[in-house]
Design a binder for these strands. Structure first.
Lengths: 242, 242
DNA sequence: TGACTATTGTATCATTATGTTACAATAATA
DNA sequence: TATTATTGTAACATAATGATACAATAGTCA
């Protein structure tokens, strides 16, 4: 997507980027009945933030979000979904970035581009967190997974962004399920149900769930069967792309 | 909301506005079983566009959208809903604005701020078009209502924006109904059904519609009854805000 | 090898929601 | 006072969803 360096410090003037506009990515990680979010941390201040970035002058907005998500996860083919734009003045809080810079020994001008007001387009993604290599950028020097129900305090309005993303994910789950590549090629109905239960945060009844999923018309049953447990072998399914 | 002039030409350099970022408002007008959209036209070129505008440096994004919608309709209290951000490079097409300026005798520089790439946040609103005074701005010198199923060709990707807005409106109708103030304070179930049928573009069965609406829990029946037609008088309802 | 265990696939029934038809009630009109 | 058009709602049919039950079976282990 790009041959240029992308971290923020490479562009101290913000040149080449659209000013005042950012993307923030809420990257949900799922595995083994756990739902986590990828967060960035700046160790010197202990502040946490969502992975984010800026939009190049000659870059599609969606590609900018994809770039941000790919750089932080090492994954290509991330399915990203735009869900909301956060554009209130009240969200503007330059203190975190000022702290980062101060801790790096550079006292920024008051009108430094990073300290200005940003309007942020929120994207969410859902990935298998065991397949991810969390990769920090040059501002946030660490990067890792945090349980959704035990998030640390986040800078600015990032907690609200996470919550809104989760709401959107839950609403869109049926429609976007096929886009998230977080189950193996072949999976059981139990795998799928675990995914749903984890994301929705509640348990579901098995027969009704099976009926509903098959009713979506996006699953095909694979002939061979799974082997491993001391019980009847479940069928394997895969998504059918029409 | 503002005491400054807001039309585009008052700011030939774009000063005071966030560059490269715009809002476009899809203002649906409903009345008497008709659904229309408010469009701007520049008479000298015949080009049509959605009402749009820019975001002030010190203005909430939502307020910018509200300002645009208010200035074009003369209405305050417009319920606006953000629905999508349009950020592809492919949507960039400076020719309409270049035409406007050329027709006004000013040959713009190639790097004029209005000719640059814009990312646009889409909002939709739903109003009673009989209560609106369509008000042109200084670029688009006329402004009026067009039937949804007979739209003229629009500049850039504005047709796609209208279609996406309509999709979103239909999906959100149940949830956002109470916010659109396009029925009188007291209205009949028939009025409400007409509204739904017009927006959804299909007819609905009366008993099921009544059941569903009452089931939403946002209607209360008013004691008094309507008078006028040669038939049984319908009950009047109003929205109940909880 | 055969009883045991855990889990699966699905049948069955219950409940709720939705689609459809029917009809009595009634406000204005003539 | 009969007529007309429309409303409110009952009644039934169908579909969707919630919940229980149970047979099927892949491994485990006596």
């Amino acid at each position: 997507m790009s041959d240029q360096p992308t971290s923020k410090e490479d562009h101290p003037t913000g040149e080449g980027f659209i000013p005042h506009l950012a993307v923030d990515a809420v990257i949900f990680g799922f595995h083994d009945k756990q739902l986590k979010v990828l967060l960035m941390q700046y160790s010197k201040t202990g502040l946490y933030a969502l992975p984010g970035g800026f939009i190049r002058q000659n870059e599609n907005l969606n590609d900018a979000a994809k770039r941000v998500a790919s750089e932080r996860t090492g994954l290509t083919d991330i399915f990203l979904e735009q869900f909301h734009v956060f554009g209130d003045l009240a969200r503007h809080d330059p203190t975190p970035f000022a702290s980062f810079m101060a801790a790096n020994g550079t006292e920024p001008d008051a009108d430094h581009w990073l300290l200005q007001r940003f309007i942020s387009v929120g994207y969410f993604a859902l990935v298998d967190f065991t397949k991810v290599t969390p990769t920090p950028d040059k501002i946030f020097d660490s990067c890792g997974w945090y349980h959704l129900n035990a998030l640390p305090p986040l800078i600015q309005d990032h907690t609200a962004i996470v919550n809104k993303a989760l709401d959107s994910l839950r609403i869109m789950l049926d429609d976007k399920l096929i886009g998230f590549n977080l189950l193996p090629e072949d999976f059981t109905m139990g795998d799928l149900q675990s995914l749903y239960e984890t994301i929705l945060g509640k348990s579901l009844l098995r027969p009704a769930f099976q009926r509903k999923m098959l009713g979506l018309g996006i699953l095909e049953r694979v002939a061979k069967k799974y082997s491993g447990g001391a019980h009847k072998a479940p069928y394997l399914y895969r998504f059918v792309y029409k």
